[in-house]
Design a protein around this nucleic acid. Structure first.
Length: 495
RNA sequence: GCCCCCGUUGUCUAGCGGCCCAGGACGUGGCCCUCUCAAGGCCAAAACACGAGUUCGAAUCUCGUCGGGGGCACCA
């Protein structure tokens, strides 16, 4: 059995929570629960300019919706606070000072204008944009004097110029880079707030994080982070970089802009949209868990509990994965079918209400059962079963005309069916289906042709739950009325 | 441009030197079931990027090539 780990999910509240970060959080959760370890939620809000109001709450809501919970976080406290980086400014500053004292970092007084100009000229000379080291070798006394004088400055890491740095990624093995290609990256901004490179390392250490799960876009900065951790003399966490999610086309990383486009095309990468569209949290969990991983040779439908049982970082795949909405739909349909009718009924109630239908208990239960195997999202239930709650239905005239029949013949058939049903008490499919089939035969039509006309008349749709089950649900009075209305419509057309 | 990573069917993947003329799933096509649509069942097409090695033997190891992706901010 594995040792208990400590993991953290550390999103920055700068936008909607998407499936990429949801998957990172999921894996954090699975690893923590699997090993009996700790799962921390930490908000990385050091970039005050990019903050979006409400984003933090959306993250918390999204995680809860997915069924994930954590042991420590800004909302529930814990022994390692603060869990919001904007509140830990002093802590980072102290660590930065410590690095300066040890000659592993230095204050840099260059203005961002100068740096921008520097980058520009480097680009024109086709050189790699990099800090030129102007302040790197300032005499310590001068640096201290200028800092004390309150001169605006950032703090940079003193990256070694010789040799190479290697760090181990769990999924890929050793990642090694020449130190000469590394920059003297900034640790603390001129406003005194730390950047990710410092803040995350400090927090991971003070929170006792043993395993860092993060997106593969961090892979190229891994050596930097290893250097920072080592400069402090801390033990390194296990680094595990998760594969990036690619657009469905497989061309390029899923970005905010693309997501806006896919949203207009009916699919979104944002958790709250998926929720709004009628996706089940267990389906989304199942879907994202399997993007870039596999937990069984032949099975692929798993509950959260089952995922906890099976989870192992060894099952993760390092290569980029194109997201597939077809698969999301498949999992959603599968999980809807896995629901008990009671649970589906409860889930469908607000969906019908949102569509303007007052869906009552027993009737809704029957509708849920009728609709269960033929919806992909909860919202589909409205299109499939809305007619159960309408007062009237408005079928297309041409759908009321049986295949190969004239309008008059169709009206006659509808009347015959209505009269047959009117002679009976409440509809019983076992008995009345046979009668209707006999009627079709007597009329010389295939049963399906008659049923098709009746379906259009009663449901107003060409696609619906089974006709007879629908009739039982909707009731004698209603189906007789709709049959009659349909017949009238056809008579009017005949003239 | 520089640095890093990845490379099994259209897509997500299993595979970690012989069990593989490559398994599962989505999607696609066909059949069955059937009052429509689904669901379900059965079947089919579909892949080891390429080239050199290493080895008795390679999808599995090495190198190169070619593809793809990521990163190069006082963002995370």
């Amino acid at each position: 059995m594995t040792e208990p780990v400590c993991v953290r999910f550390a999103p920055s509240p700068t936008g909607h929570m998407h499936i990429g970060s949801a998957r990172t959080a999921l894996y954090d959760y699975l690893l923590a629960r699997k090993t009996g370890g700790r799962f921390i939620l930490r908000i990385e809000d050091t970039d005050q300019k990019r903050l979006i109001p409400g984003a933090e709450q959306e993250i918390i809501d999204g995680l809860h919706w997915l069924g994930l919970d954590w042991d420590e976080g800004p909302d529930k406290g814990g022994p390692h606070g603060p869990y919001r980086q904007s509140l830990a400014k002093e802590i980072y500053l102290e660590h930065a000072r410590q690095l300066i004292a040890n000659d592993r970092a230095y204050p840099c007084f260059c203005t961002s204008e100068r740096l921008a100009a520097l980058r520009e000229s480097q680009r024109q000379r086709k050189e790699n944009p990099r800090y030129d080291g102007t302040c790197r070798n300032l005499p310590p006394s001068e640096a201290a004097r200028r800092m004390a004088a309150g001169e605006t400055h950032v703090i940079r890491f003193k990256t070694p110029k010789e040799g190479s740095t290697a760090a181990v990624d769990l999924l890929r093995g050793e990642i090694r880079v020449e130190n000469g290609t590394l920059d003297d990256f900034i640790l603390v901004k001129s406003d005194g707030l730390a950047l990710y490179h410092l803040a995350a390392m400090v927090d991971d250490n003070r929170m006792g994080v043993t395993h860092v799960l993060r997106g593969a876009e961090w892979l190229s900065t891994l050596p930097l982070h290893a250097l920072v951790v080592r400069a402090f003399g801390w033990r390194e966490p296990v680094w595990c970089h998760l594969s990036v999610f690619l657009k469905p086309s497989g061309k390029g990383k899923m970005s905010k802009r693309d997501s806006a486009q896919t949203a207009t095309e009916g699919h979104s990468i944002f958790i709250r949209d998926l929720r709004e569209e009628g996706y089940l949290p267990e389906a989304i969990v199942n879907w994202i868990a399997l993007m870039g991983a596999s937990f069984d040779e032949t099975e692929d439908v798993f509950s959260l509990e089952e995922l906890v049982r099976r989870f192992d970082l060894k099952h993760l795949n390092p290569s980029p994965a194109a997201i597939s909405y077809e698969k999301a739909d498949h999992f959603n349909g599968t999980h809807i079918r896995l629901l008990s009718v009671e649970d589906l009924t409860a889930l469908l109630k607000p969906v019908f209400e949102k569509a303007g239908y007052a869906a009552d208990g027993e009737r809704l239960r029957k509708v849920a059962a009728a609709v269960q195997v033929r919806i992909v999202t909860l919202d589909d239930a409205v299109a499939m079963g809305g007619f159960f709650f309408h007062d009237e239905v408005h079928p297309e005239a041409h759908d009321l005309v049986g295949k190969g029949l004239t309008t008059a013949q169709s009206a006659d058939a509808l009347r015959a069916a209505r009269e047959l049903l009117a002679a009976e008490p409440e509809f019983e499919s076992a008995k009345d289906e046979a009668a209707l089939r006999a009627l079709a035969e007597r009329l010389g039509y295939k049963p399906g042709v008659l049923f098709g006309m009746m379906r259009a008349a009663i449901t107003g749709q060409t696609v619906s739950p089974p006709l007879f089950a629908s009739m039982e649900i909707i009731g004698r009075k209603t189906y007789l009325a709709r049959l009659e209305a349909a017949e009238e419509l056809l008579r009017k057309m005949v003239g």
